[in-house]
């Protein structure tokens, strides 16, 4: 396998892991923290809200502007 193929494989594994955990937490009936619950908890603090906003801003600027 080439380096490029390894990179894509690892990205795919990461994406799959996130998807599996999303579904698992969603189906757990509240026993596991969903992404929404984690985000709500982060947003409850000012620093968490700022960090989320900075991450969102970076993602948009990096993806669409530069």
């Amino acid at each position: 396998m080439t380096g490029r193929q390894w990179s894509f494989l690892i990205w795919a594994v990461l994406g799959l892991a996130v998807t599996v955990w999303l579904v698992a937490t969603w189906l757990s009936g509240g026993r596991l923290p969903t992404l929404g619950a984690v985000l709500l908890r982060l947003k409850a603090s000012s620093i968490g809200r700022v960090l989320l906003a900075v991450g969102w801003a970076w993602l948009g600027w990096h993806s669409f502007a530069r």
Partner: peptide, 22 residues
């Protein structure tokens, strides 16, 4: 006061760290 963080929330942290690290 808010409940203490769920230990399974660390899985989310691990996924974020792995993605940012990669």
């Amino acid at each position: 006061p808010p409940e203490p963080p769920h230990r399974w929330a660390l899985v989310w942290l691990g996924l974020v760290v792995a993605t940012v690290g990669w």
